[in-house]
Write a protein that binds this DNA or RNA. Structure first.
Length: 258
DNA sequence: ATGGCCTTAGTTTAAGGA
């Protein structure tokens, strides 16, 4: 089963990219972030026509997450969870579903703006809540995958210019400690199971010709429970859609499991 | 050089992203 994550920065603008990429990548389960549309505007029928069912938690203008599932895969309809249970939040950042017996979670972690700001404090609170929820989810679902835009570059090798970024949002010690705490629940960074060229990133700023200069960060991740990590045979970033016209600033990350 | 670009809302500039 091929599972993937992609922050599309507006599904309305990127709908054609998504359907084109699903076709070329042969992805079975695609987790989306930054839909930027309310549920009534979600292109459910159009995706269905392309062979994918969808579950989503949208909102106007900001955030919004979804999971697209290839026709024929078994989805437990009673398993759908939106948002982090017990964490009151109008921002739609999480949706979970059990697909073919695998707990799949699509998550859009808060950006955080900058250390010291209210948005950064919200990011840390959100990460605390996510940690505690995932801990319980792992107990119930040994086969679990947490996919999404983490808005955290876990290590300096995930940053094009670690000196320039030192201590800043997305790389700060507090955020990296939270990433480690998640991993310590019994999760594996699928990407790091395999060899990759140095400076493999998932996001590049629209400005400053950042993509052409490969001035990026690796902030989109697929974390697998130990039970799943053993059966993971690949995990790669697909930079190709970042070269298309009117691209998202993120590239999809795809892993093959089971 | 503290900006640069893109999306949304909505109508003209501002907020948010990362």
């Amino acid at each position: 089963m091929k599972i993937a994550t992609w922050n599309v920065n507006s599904l309305k603008v990127r709908q054609q990219h998504v359907t084109d990429w699903l076709e070329t990548s042969q992805t079975d389960v695609l987790c989306l972030q930054e839909l930027k549309l309310p549920d009534e505007k979600f292109p459910r029928a159009e995706l269905e026509a392309k062979g994918y069912r969808s579950w989503f938690a949208g909102q106007k203008t900001y955030n919004g997450v979804g999971i697209l599932v290839r026709e024929g895969l078994v989805v437990d309809e009673t398993s759908i969870v939106r948002n982090i249970p017990g964490f009151e939040d109008p921002q739609q950042r999480v949706i979970a579903a059990t697909i073919e017996g695998v707990r799949i979670i699509s998550a859009y972690f808060p950006n955080g703006q900058a250390p010291g700001t209210e948005k950064f404090a919200y990011k840390l609170r959100w990460l605390d809540a996510l940690h505690d929820w995932i801990s319980g989810e792992l107990a119930q679902h040994p086969k679990l995958a947490l996919l999404g835009d983490y808005n955290i570059a876990p290590e300096d090798r995930d940053v094009h210019d670690p000196k320039a970024w030192e201590g800043q949002n997305l790389v700060s010690p507090e955020e990296r400690a939270q990433f480690v705490r998640l991993v310590e629940l019994g999760l594996v960074d699928a990407f790091r199971k395999f060899e990759h060229p140095e400076k493999t990133f998932t996001w590049w700023d629209y400005r400053m010709l950042a993509f052409r200069r490969n001035a990026g960060l690796r902030i989109d991740h697929i974390l697998l429970s130990n039970a799943l990590a053993g059966s993971c045979t690949s995990c790669d970033v697909d930079r190709v859609p970042r070269k298309w016209d009117q691209p998202s600033d993120h590239a999809p990350v795809i892993a093959e499991i089971g």
